[in-house]
Design a protein around this nucleic acid. Structure first.
Lengths: 235, 235
DNA sequence: GAGCGCTTATTGTGATCACAATTATTATGA
DNA sequence: TCATAATAATTGTGATCACAATAAGCGCTC
């Protein structure tokens, strides 16, 4: 049985709307690390009821994108060298695999969108728009990964990205202007040539570039615990 | 098990209790894939209010441990070859790394607990207790991983394990009795000798063994209807 | 006996209120 | 002036009710 108007199914609920809004804010780093997230206050800010906001916060907390303290209070996660280490390790492990799994499913239309995202990244550099960079960079990567329909793996990656979004945004001003050799174009080139090995290397290199840049700026923290290298072993 | 230590801080809330209960049921595979999870019905079963159960279900759903359909209805995830592929891929990527990160932090007391879990696994084989096997196997692995305090990575792994728990339990009857060369003892041996490479190999081999066993049972018919039977003959 | 329309039951979503605990603020003391 | 106690505001947790949408039963007709 079917309905003529298909607005029945994808009718977005309030909690979905609240979730998407907060999630996007995390990804582009609109909220600073350590900032407290209050139920009623945030509900007021996003102009949404308390119940949807409660569901949204619970969901983000379950995805490790928000930190819940012993007080049952919630806040934007603070970055530590150890957490940064694990997040980048997770990226290095999962993202190349995701990209390789997706390569065969990237058609011309998808590739066009990937290029468009990369153009947006370049534009963000020129105009110095940090949030645009964050959003476009996320879109670029997940346009690739999502093409492979690897729901399980991409879900893990979404969690990882939301966790370092706020921190990454705070250090954008210090390192964001610097641009190394573009690994994104290398990835696009690999996709065009259907070269899985090169695509894997491009993704790895892109992550390592980011690690190298962001890793340095972590030493501003009260760094009593600092493990030197970000990722130890590499397969 | 654990008793009340300092009840001031970690005073468990109702939603935590509901979450832990459901989570344990998923890990040991007490609930069959495809089974619908209703809010009020499950709240009645676990003898808990509707609000805590709603929070628990939302949390598990966010961790991909429960499937939420377009009807907004929730059920135990069904296994497919593609999902199984991704889950085992995630294990192979993350778990060896987690074990290596933890090795240096495994003291004698932790090692004793690891051995105890392995003994429980062996006991579960003898008495044919599937749920005991599932619980002990989970405890064995995460006793290792958690020693490294890699909260980010272990959180990802917990999500992965909950996703294949129900499916793994259904095929236990068919393949559970079989025991290959024990990779757990190999892992314990590697820990004793502080051999990171050997530990990594042991974990990898253990996962591959499980994949080999479980993977076969997936290659049955387009198995939408076969997900129920637990102890059926295997070709 | 199988398909169809109606009624009933159950579902998830959301709002609203109550409560205890914690935090912030103010008043009061030396 | 500064520490301290009392008060007020804000927090998360949980219960209860309302509502629309969907699923399940059930009687009916052909």
């Amino acid at each position: 049985m079917r309905d003529e108007g298909d607005e029945v199914r994808p009718e977005q609920t309030m909690q979905d709307r609240a979730y998407q809004t907060l999630r996007h804010a995390l990804i582009v780093g609109k909220l600073p690390p350590g900032k407290g997230i209050s139920l009623r206050a945030m509900a007021e800010d996003l102009d949404v009821g308390v119940m949807p906001m409660r569901a949204a916060i619970a969901r983000l907390s379950a995805e490790n994108a928000l930190t819940v303290h012993d007080n049952r209070r919630v806040s934007i996660p603070e970055m530590t060298t150890d957490r940064f280490d694990q997040l980048m390790q997770a990226r290095l492990l999962i993202e190349p695999t995701c990209a390789m799994r997706a390569l065969g499913a990237i058609d011309e239309a998808t590739l066009a969108r990937i290029r468009a995202h990369d153009d947006e990244i370049n534009r963000s550099y020129q105009i110095g728009d940090a949030e645009l960079y964050m959003a476009s960079n996320h879109a670029f990567h997940f346009e690739i990964y999502r093409a492979g329909r690897s729901e399980v793996l991409t879900h893990l990656l979404e969690s990882v990205w939301m966790q370092f979004g706020p921190f990454m945004r705070t250090v954008y001003g210090a390192v964001g202007a610097v641009r190394l050799t573009d690994k994104h174009e290398m990835a696009i080139d690999a996709i065009e040539r259907r070269d899985v090995t090169r695509l894997k290397l491009a993704i790895e290199a892109d992550i390592l570039d980011g690690m190298d840049l962001l890793g340095k700026s972590i030493f501003t923290q009260p760094a009593e615990m600092r493990s030197v290298s970000a990722a130890s072993g590499q397969a």
